[in-house]
Design a protein around this nucleic acid. Structure first.
Lengths: 147, 147, 147, 147
DNA sequence: GTGGTCTAGACCACA
DNA sequence: GTGGTCTAGACCACC
């Protein structure tokens, strides 16, 4: 999965896991239908507890990004806009929470003296980076680099 | 100060307080030199402990946004870019952390199916809103609330 | 940890704690990756409150010298220059504050009539002492004191 | 006196006052026998309380740097080494306290990754700066700039 | 078992 | 009157 986790970070492990998966989806490395690494395997890979991985997957499930099927395991349920006419599916409450979070993050930079232009450019280039990787079919994995 | 705090939220009270102040600075409701509400008063206002408020102010101080003096209380020390040629003063590490946080937030929306345009527009309008309120000299509502 | 704290001193307990840890890092007694004594244990050891120890650790965290994780505890994150090409990471503002503090300390000795040579020698021998202890792999005294 | 005081700094006003005088002595702007500005005048000049100024002078007196004479006011009692064979007069305890303070300051820089050379150079240039100003007879004041 | 959060309440330093 | 310091003690999150 190409995921990196920092065991010392103050960010909880399960949260880091969730964040990396979300970013993976945005960058197209994980596409709708893709199967997530089974909890046991992932836990072993990172040397963390199964419950911790499970909690990360729980978060993703609660956000509707992942669907768990008893037989097929966990699969990605949503993904970047695909021009197929589909509209975003998250509910208003989730959207509002997201906007509040975005507001806080943007405010931090503005309060520190960054210009609106600089901030907007930063956001734009992050989005462009996601888009690039999506269109390049970047699978992230590839060369047996899963260690 | 017109700040609202949600005692139920899982976000720590002192963190919420810090977030609201940061947003206040970005929106120009709190300008460099302005005095923050005294810890005791704010604690009474929210029905929370003085130490909790103090910890929120601690954070702001660590970020360089606020300066505190036993007698004069806490005052805003930094603010939005003012076209005076001053450059942002936060250091590279803080900047990098901010960008990582922004990346995660943007990824959430993209993963949920929002288009890049929609996301960028959302960011743009938040920034524009800050700018508007700054230029309108928006004091937050009411004028006598600094006592 | 072999740390001593003076409960009578007008220097805040948490500040003393922070100072001793910083000195420990400089002298190589605490190396990047080393685990700090858990807050509760240290509090018991000194007969002070957990929150006080926590505040000391907060300071170190804010300076980037320590990283904290709920499960792993607090670990040293930075250390003396290691000739590995790494540059100091503290920001300009922190550096400037440090230099102002150094200026005041040096001025005290000069004003008291110490010669420049004497003062510089004092500084040099302190630094040499740090270096010696680092290269000697001085663990602080005893080997089993990390429990 | 050319002294600048920051009313918002977390450093107590009386401490700032004391620090600036100590630095003034080190830089030769204030020489043994020079008269310090009377407390009332200085208090008025800075818009601070007389007692605060008094407390700053108390500190200097306790350090033996200033002697107060009921008729002549406060005068500088000590100064930089003058090659007259006089030895530093501060007692061992004060000297030890100073060295402990210096140790902490130096440790901060080393812990942050500065090399011994860089730190020693910083100290050297500060001392050289003091010496320069002393030999240049820099009085600091001069052009009616006492406002 | 680790650290984080929060409370209630006391005392002190600064000005 | 302002904020800083410290205590005692409780509860929670993470793993």
């Amino acid at each position: 999965m190409q995921i990196e986790i920092d065991p010392i970070s103050e960010v909880p492990l399960y949260q880091q896991l969730r964040d990396r998966v979300v970013e993976g989806i945005a960058a197209g490395r994980l596409r709708p239908g893709d199967k997530l690494t089974p909890v046991r395997q992932l836990a072993g890979q990172f040397g963390i507890n199964i419950a911790t991985v499970g909690k990360g997957y729980d978060l993703l499930r609660a956000e509707g990004l992942v669907r768990t099927n008893r037989t097929a395991g966990s699969v990605i349920a949503r993904g970047p806009h695909t021009n197929d006419g589909s509209a975003p599916e998250w509910d208003a409450a989730a959207r509002a929470g997201w906007e509040a979070r975005l507001t806080t993050v943007l405010a931090e930079a503005v309060a520190q003296g960054e210009t609106d232009g600089t901030v907007l450019t930063a956001a734009g280039s992050i989005l462009a980076d996601f888009a690039d990787r999506r269109s390049n079919g970047d699978t992230g994995a590839g060369e047996n680099d899963n260690r």
